[in-house]
């Protein structure tokens, strides 16, 4: 999966090499920008999450000895998507008035997200261990695809069968997660 140039990106980033950071910007930022803009964000939003993602990557490598398993670009884009997911959820909460707007310290912002991202990666790894069918079914179901559509798409005989399948797949996923020792460590 790793591409030529990925190590160069990571090393350049870690050593604070302006030229390499500029290259990373030119190559990857445009797709992050277009994703954020399509999802209710501005240029400034995209810029902030992009910089946070790069910064947090260095923190993870230095403190957690983290290694990128996919490509540099793929990793960065996924993290940006998640950072944006979190930000949008925060904004929703503020609108719904569920909590007073808390001033989160800069270091707390980064440490929380890094731990959440680690957990996210663990869950994602476990999902990939499910059967292809289970994986697709769960993703569709939890992204609000209605039962009747699922029944048709997956060729189930009834909505009840579909429900049973979702239930079983979810149980399998939970069992896989529970078996992994990292699950407890990350709590």
């Amino acid at each position: 999966m790793r591409k030529k140039g990925d190590d160069n990106y990571l090393e350049g980033l870690l050593s604070g090499n302006d030229y390499v950071i500029k290259q990373i910007y030119e190559k990857i930022f445009p797709s992050v920008l277009s994703f954020v803009r399509k999802n209710k964000g501005t240029y400034e939003d995209a810029e902030e999450i992009f910089q946070d993602a790069l910064f947090q990557l260095t923190v993870r490598v230095k403190v957690r000895r983290f290694e990128i398993k996919s490509t540099f670009e793929g990793y960065l884009f996924t993290v940006c998507k998640n950072l944006w997911r979190k930000e949008l959820n925060n904004r929703k909460k503020v609108v719904r008035n569920e909590g007073v707007i808390e001033l989160v310290q800069e270091e707390e912002k980064h440490s929380s997200f890094i731990l959440e991202q680690e957990r996210w990666e663990l869950f994602e790894e476990k999902i990939k261990q499910l059967s292809e069918n289970c994986m697709k079914l769960l993703r569709e179901y939890f992204n609000k695809v209605p039962y009747d559509v699922i029944v048709e798409k997956f060729n189930y005989s009834s909505e009840n069968v579909a429900f049973q399948r979702v239930f079983k797949c979810k149980k399998r996923l939970k069992d896989l997660i529970k078996k992994d020792s990292r699950y407890r460590q990350l709590q």
Partner: peptide, 12 residues
Amino acid sequence: HLNDSAWMVIEA
């Protein structure tokens, strides 16, 4: 995790 528009905040 499975819902693309949700995010689980962990209170560590």
